[in-house]
Each structure stands twice: as structure tokens, then as C-alpha cells.
Simulated scan of single mutants.
Amino acid sequence: MADHSALDAVLRRRSHSSVTADAPTHEELLPLVAAAATVADHSALRPWRLIELRGAARERLGAAFVEASGLEGKDAEKLAAKPLRASLLIAVVARTVPSFKVPAWEQEAVASGVAHTLSLLLDDAGWGVMWRTGGHTRAAAVHRMHGLGDDEHLLGWLYVGGRIPDKEKPRKPIDAEPLISVLD
């Protein structure tokens, strides 16, 4: 990882809609997942898990997309190919843990925090990442394909691969003033 501040890493992060076939190994992911697991987590419930999809698992996901959509022909082929855009997909799963102190929305926020932190860590390690979501995250066929339990649902997938330098674009500065207010 580069020698810079967290602020630098956050400001430098971009979504990479196109990536090369390179991807981090399972072993390379482990320290990044361990770091992402340090997000604020009321009662340390760990209301999330991650699923790596590589190779044929991505093809099965594409088939589940098609099953969920009911599309046929060329439209089905195009939809089935979407998970093949990166050689590594990381499914982000939120799971609700029974708790009288931590409501379900807060547990989902933790899972979202893990996903975002992991995307920052992957970006900082030099990988291209894009968090993809959509209606298929709640489809029964996609749920089955991932082997999710009744207390689990998908928040989306991190598509991970090598960066394509020609596609790097500078981010427009964000004016924070209208995004924060002060109570007196």
C-alpha cells in the first residue's frame, strides 16, 4: 500500500466500470477483509459476510440473473454476461442478527460500511473496483444461487480487477458547504 493519508485514499478512489482479468488472490484479500471488519459495529454482531465468486460461479450468477428476469434470446445472453465483466466478484451479504439493542437498519449500515471500506482498501492496493447493485440483489434465483439464509440479503457485488490506466479520470471537486449544516 502507498504511503499517504486516509484522506488521500478516499479522494483518489474511483469506480472502475471496466477492469482487466487480473484479480487479487484469496490470500491477498484476507488482510483487506480483516481491516474492513474493523468498521464501527454496535455490539460486535458482525452482521455481514462476503462471498467470492470466480470462474464458473460468475456464470451461475449470470444464469440466475436470466432466470430472475425471464428474458430470452440476445437480451438474456447480454444479461448473463454481466457478471463476467470482472474475474472476481465479491458478494456483500447483510445478515440480521437478533438483538434488542441493534436494529436491522443499523446492522445493514455496518454491512454497507464493510463493503465501502473494502472497496477503498482494494483501490488503495491498486485494484479497480466498482460496487454494483440493482433489482437482482433481491431476486429469489440470485438468493438461491448464493446459498443465502432467510436472515440474509445481498447488498450487491464488488467487481474487482486490474485497472485500465487509459480510463482513469480526475474527479470533480465536491463543495461540502451545502452538505453540512450547523445547529446553534
Rank of each mutant, 00 (worst) to 15 (best):
E72L: 07
E72T: 15
E72S: 12
E72R: 06
E72W: 00
E72H: 09
G73H: 08
G73E: 10
G73M: 04
G73L: 13
K74I: 09
K74M: 11
K74Y: 03
K74G: 02
K74R: 12
K74P: 05
K74T: 14
D75N: 07
D75W: 02
D75L: 08
A76I: 04
A76W: 00
A76M: 08
A76G: 04
E77I: 01
E77S: 08
E77W: 01
E77V: 03
E77H: 00
E77T: 05
E77P: 04
E77M: 01
K78C: 02
K78G: 02
K78Q: 08
K78S: 07
K78L: 10
K78I: 14
K78Y: 02
L79V: 03
L79R: 05
L79M: 11
L79G: 03
A80F: 01
A80D: 01
A80V: 02
A80C: 04
A81M: 01
A81D: 15
K82F: 00
K82H: 00
K82P: 00
K82Y: 01
K82C: 00
P83F: 01
P83N: 04
P83V: 06
L84I: 00
L84S: 12
L84F: 05
L84E: 14
R85A: 06
R85T: 06
R85E: 04
R85C: 00
R85G: 06
R85H: 06
A86V: 10
A86W: 01
A86M: 05
A86C: 12
S87P: 07
S87T: 15
S87G: 06
S87W: 03
L88I: 12
L88N: 10
L88A: 13
L88V: 14
L88M: 12
L89F: 08
L89D: 07
L89Y: 10
L89P: 02
L89H: 15
L89I: 10
L89Q: 09
L89S: 12
I90V: 15
I90F: 03
I90L: 14
I90A: 13
I90Y: 05
I90P: 03
I90E: 08
A91G: 15
A91M: 12
A91Y: 09
A91T: 14
A91F: 08
A91V: 15
A91Q: 11
A91H: 11
V92R: 05
V92Y: 04
V92N: 08
V93S: 01
V93Y: 02
V93D: 03
A94K: 02
A94P: 06
R95F: 02
R95T: 04
R95Y: 05
R95L: 11
T96V: 13
T96R: 13
T96L: 08
V97I: 15
V97A: 06
V97P: 11
V97L: 07
V97T: 15
V97F: 03
V97K: 12
P98S: 10
P98V: 13
S99G: 09
S99V: 07
S99L: 07
F100L: 09
F100N: 05
F100C: 06
F100S: 15
F100K: 15
K101F: 01
K101V: 07
K101A: 13
K101E: 15
V102S: 08
V102H: 14
V102E: 14
V102C: 05
V102W: 06
V102M: 02
